[in-house]
Design a protein around this nucleic acid. Sequence first.
DNA 1: TCTGGGGTCCTAGGACCC
DNA 2: TCTGGGGTCCTAGGACCC
Length: 422
Amino acid sequence: MTTFALCDCNSFYVSCERLFRPDLHGKPVIVGSNNDGCAVARSPEAKALGIKMGEPIFKIKDIIKRYGVTVFSSNYTLYAAISHRVMSTLEQFSPAVEVYSIDEAFLDLSHLAFIDSLKNYGFEIKSKVAKECGIPICIGIAETKTLAKLANHAAKQYPKTGGVVEINSEKIRERLLKCMPIDEVWGVGRKLTKKLQALGITTAYELANLPEKYIRQQFNVVLERTVRELNGESCIELEEHAPAKKQIISSRSFSKRITDQAELAESISSYMSRAAEKLRQQHSRAQQVNVFIRTSPFSDTPQYNCGGSFSLPHPTSDTRVLVHVAKGILDTIYKPGYLYAKAGVMLANISELSFDQADLFTPEIDTSKSQQLMTVVDQINRRFPKALFLASTGTNQGWQMARQHLSPNYMTDWAEIPLVRL
DNA sequence: TCTGGGGTCCTAGGACCC
DNA sequence: TCTGGGGTCCTAGGACCC
């Protein structure tokens, strides 16, 4: 029998910011998305003011002003460093941990399944993370990942639980499913919610009791798996080691509208450099390059939304080659006269370095030379971020995203000091 | 003025082959 | 010119997740 614990940090980005700003405890705080566009994290006090997840910040200007809501720009470097610390702490409690996202992890507790109740173990984990990392978390424990998710949701929603909920009996499972609306179920999104509601299914309990055959006919195998999981049959395994990415995307909205192709090319070059770096980090090469540019769907100016792709004769991870190709694609899709709001690149058809097919016409010396060069560039940039870049990336970058309310990099700026040594 | 970014998986449909 | 069926592979798009 399997047992999973889902540990999920409470309002993670906000908790990170508060760690260094204890004066903000008990006060409404939100963290914005890139470009300070939407609210992507909210303190409980901010939620109580009615600020919704993903709500555009310009729309809640009044609330922010009236109630003195503190706004932070996303400081991903800071959050990643704290996340790393939380995950290391969690790893002390289980032989197998799946880091599911920046703020949550599944712990395999199957080896403890013989114990009647793991609730106290949950509280132990929770207080250790609070003590060592200063981050509040909630924990859901159950036989399947989907049930653990649901238990976690209950732990968050009902303060009386103390932040830990365990499903360890049929009675508890039933009670929990009955009070959970279907849209809280992992794997049921907006569209499915609508479709299910139209059929009169409103709770997780009703969903769990639909016949499998019916689900298969009316929906698909994915929902069927969800239903099985709700009924205690574990179908989704723990993935301890993240598999290599099959596609790598790098894109951003600009801080201002762009019309000029040269400026677009700078942004494309910059995004592609980041994507290529990620590619090399996972020891892969890509063969297909995609580029897209688009105007803002929210403005009533003329719309243009276009992408193009190119397949290379040989997979590569060389930034110079990838940038060159991407700019070639931009040539073919760019149209003057539009107010561009966003651009991006995607690398696909990704293969492992070791699976490289030797080809009679691949200039072997060149590829190993390029690899050596890229390795050196990456090494230098790891120690001195953004020290080396292609000239085509530009130095002005007036399109770079806006981050008006950025907090200092408390963790990394300090943490880097001992790393600077030969 | 101002509306995030990065992923995965599944399915339907077209192209192509025998 | 019209008539068939069955299979694979690829791609685009939709749905989901955080």
